[in-house]
């Protein structure tokens, strides 16, 4: 069942007589119990979507439903139905992670004992107990970001909205965080992760939507989209030590690109041994340094899609 449904949402900002189309006919659907990745460049319209869900902005047209409630008609409902991670620059002043997380839990109406248990559980899971009682204005960006996550997760609504949850967070705690995000979905809570860290979100999201200049370029199951666009392809990445003229596209490769000393070849998966042999030869000839064979990632696909969209606009 869909927890969040946006239907043909359009939002324009007007400032000093200039109009900016932040959301252009956006339709999205986020289901119960799924992690939904909302990807896009800066200015793609991601935050505008979040602010409309929370009733901080009103769309020009279109409908937004959360858990069956029309939040365009009743903009005050959104923030009761969704819990949100505050923007990273939100100052906590002298609030400690423990105090602010507990206050958020109590504001959502869960009892003191449960608030305490949840807070302890989350801090333990993210391994931030040592900062639990340090004032917010003395905390590092990463710990603040994790605190923001706990503020949203201590008493999740029907949906939890996380805005760039992993920025500034160290690699070890990032893993804890993704696992904590998955935990949230176990009772049917929908989680929307707004991010441009696609590579790292790739394995953690179920469904994605890619936004570019206010429009949804693609949305659906992450795995399916990858299979559809990348198909059975792999890529060879290598550090180039020679100029473009030195490289000739081998027959087995479908494409060869060299940009900023990074050589990338794509090819069908079953030709991987050939690709490896070729890379070894190039290295022996001193044309490349280290190289690797990898899967086509969601990020590759994203960059290609955004690139196409930009080309389309230019043409």
């Amino acid at each position: 069942m869909a927890v969040i449904e946006l239907d043909h949402v359009t939002k324009t900002y007007k400032s000093r007589g200039r109009k900016t189309l932040a959301n252009n006919d956006v339709s999205l659907s986020v289901n119960e119990g799924e992690v939904f990745g909302l990807f896009g460049h800066n200015g793609a319209g991601k935050t505008t979507i979040v602010n409309q869900l929370l009733g901080l902005l009103r769309p020009d047209s279109g409908s937004i439903m959360i858990a069956g409630k029309d939040v365009v008609k009743e903009p005050n409902l959104g923030r009761y139905l969704c819990s949100v991670q505050p923007q990273s620059r939100t100052p906590l002043g002298e609030l400690t992670p423990r105090a602010v997380t507990q206050i958020m839990g109590k504001l959502r109406g869960i009892d003191d004992a449960e608030v305490e248990r949840r807070t302890k559980e989350l801090f333990g899971k993210l391994d931030i107990e040592q900062w639990a009682d340090v004032q917010g204005n003395k905390l590092s960006g990463g710990v603040l970001r994790l605190t923001g996550f706990c503020m949203a997760a201590v008493a999740p609504g029907r949906a939890v909205i996380l805005d760039e949850p992993t920025n500034d967070v160290d690699p070890v705690r990032r893993r804890y965080l993704w696992s904590a995000i998955r935990d949230l979905t176990r009772d049917g809570t929908a989680v929307v992760v707004v991010t441009h860290a696609i590579r790292e979100a790739e394995s953690a999201v179920d469904t994605i939507a890619i936004l570019n200049e206010g429009k949804v370029l693609v949305q659906g199951n992450a795995r399916e989209i990858k299979d559809r666009t990348a198909g059975d392809q792999m890529k060879l990445e290598a550090v180039a030590k020679a100029g473009e003229e030195q490289f000739v596209k081998p027959e087995w490769a479908e494409s060869l690109k060299l940009a900023e000393a990074e050589l990338v070849l794509t090819f069908p998966r079953d030709l991987a041994t050939e690709a490896l042999r070729w890379a070894g030869e190039q290295r022996d000839r001193g044309l490349v340094a280290q190289y690797s064979l990898t899967e086509i990632t969601l990020e590759d696909m994203y960059i290609e899609l955004i690139g196409k969209a930009v080309d389309g606009v230019q043409r």
Binding site: L54, L56, Q87
Partner: peptide, 13 residues
Amino acid sequence: LTGYIDFVKSLPV
């Protein structure tokens, strides 16, 4: 300016 008011406005109260 720091977004604290937006945070307050997004609280469930």
